[in-house]
Structures are given as structure tokens and as C-alpha cells.
Amino acid sequence: MSYAIIGFGKLGQALAKAFARKGIEVSVATTRDPESFAADAAAIGPGIIPKTLAQAIEADIVFLAVRYESHREVAKALPTWKGKTIIDVTNAYGVPPEELGGQPSSKVVAQAFAGARLVKGFNHLVAAVLGQDPAVQGGRRVVFLASDDDAAATEIGALAENLGFSPVKLGGLSEGGLLVQARGNSWGQLIFKDLIKFD
């Protein structure tokens, strides 16, 4: 299984740190030349590999860690995303609900990435918290996952566990997904909730 993070701002770098902690290789890309962020990638760890967008999206599992407004531009990089799983880390805060056609933002993202299996996840924590070690006082930091594809949610749940997090599935995008999505100028009820699970 190969992994990529598209977007290398604060959230993208926080995700890269999670991979680096576990020694799991991950490609990182933006719309910029990889050399422009190679030093930042190297500072996180040797398994954080800067690539072009075209190279990075060859991965099986792709974290979409760009601004919500940029998701369509990334989606155009492939004619079909069939066989790939997209983890939507975007937040559509400030985007008018009418622009989303009354749908959760992840449904709009899913439509742009035609053919992909989409999981909403890793977006409810601020980057500074997401970038910390998820092992806390004998427990593990929770990440919420929502998807209309149960198998995809299970697959990303297993990845979250490999990265040291405790995944909590919320159900479909239109139900549980709304708990971790921004709507206009309001945040879902679980956004910014930093929870720790003790087994």
C-alpha cells in the first residue's frame, strides 16, 4: 500500500509527522516544484518523499490536505480516481452552504474525485494538535472517520491505528460526517474536540 499527502501546509506537515514517527514512507506534494519544500520534508524525516503532484497521486491512499477551494484543481490531475481512496482533510469553513448545494462538503469533494472511495477524516484537530504524538497518558488520540463506503472507512481506520491514533467511525457523510464538517460560518459539533481513548 502506498501513501501520499497532497498539500504541505500545517496540516500536511502534521500528517507527515505521524508517518515519520512510525517509519512509514509517504509521498508529499503540492502544486509547486518539489524542490521548494524538500528541506521541510527532510526536516520531518527520511521517509517523507517530496514529489510532483503527478507522481504523488500514483499512491493507493491519498490525503487531501489542501484548502477546500483547491480540491477541484487537484481532482483534475487524473481522469478517473478509480481504485484509490481519498481522505478528505479539507474544511469548507466560510463556504456558503448554497455553494455546496446543501450537501456536506465531503459529498462535493467525492463528486470531484470521480471513482474514488472517499473518507472524511483527520480534519477535526488543529494542525498543532494533530502533529503531536497521539499516545497520551496511556491512551490514544481519537480521529473521527466518516464515509459512505464502509470498507474504505475500515481500511483508513486500520491506517489510523498504524499511525498510533484511535479511530472512531461516525457513519455516512450525510449523518456522522456533519459532526466534523463546517457549514457556512459554523463548525460541526466534534470539530476541535481533542479526545483520548483508553482501552
Rank of each mutant, 00 (worst) to 15 (best):
F192M: 14
A42S: 15
A18P: 09
F198C: 09
I5A: 03
A112I: 01
A29D: 11
A41M: 07
I156L: 14
L178E: 02
G188F: 11
K10E: 15
G83T: 08
G157H: 00
Q137I: 01
A16N: 13
V143Y: 04
G176P: 07
V136P: 09
S186G: 12
S166H: 13
V62M: 09
I61D: 13
I196R: 11
L145V: 04
G101M: 01
Q181M: 04
A152I: 00
F192R: 14
V89H: 01
K22N: 05
I48F: 12
G171V: 00
L11A: 08
V74F: 11
S174Q: 02
L100T: 07
V129M: 10
Q103R: 13
K76W: 00
E69P: 00
T85H: 02
F113T: 10
G47I: 10
F122D: 02
N91W: 01
I44F: 03
R117D: 05
K169N: 10
H124D: 08
Y68L: 03
G172L: 01
L11K: 06
K197M: 10
A65K: 05
P50E: 14
V109R: 02
S27C: 15
I156E: 03
I156G: 03
F122S: 07
E58N: 15
T80V: 09
V62A: 07
Y68A: 09
I24W: 08
L130P: 01
M1Q: 15
V26I: 13
T31P: 01
S36P: 06
T52V: 07
V180I: 15
I24V: 14
K120P: 04
E99W: 03
R183I: 10
V95T: 14
V66R: 06
K193C: 07
S166V: 00
K193I: 02
V168Q: 14
F19H: 11
E35W: 04
A4Y: 07
L190T: 01
H71G: 11
K22M: 04
F198K: 11
G45M: 11
A135L: 10
G23V: 08
A158V: 08
L15I: 09
K120M: 01
G102M: 02
K22R: 15
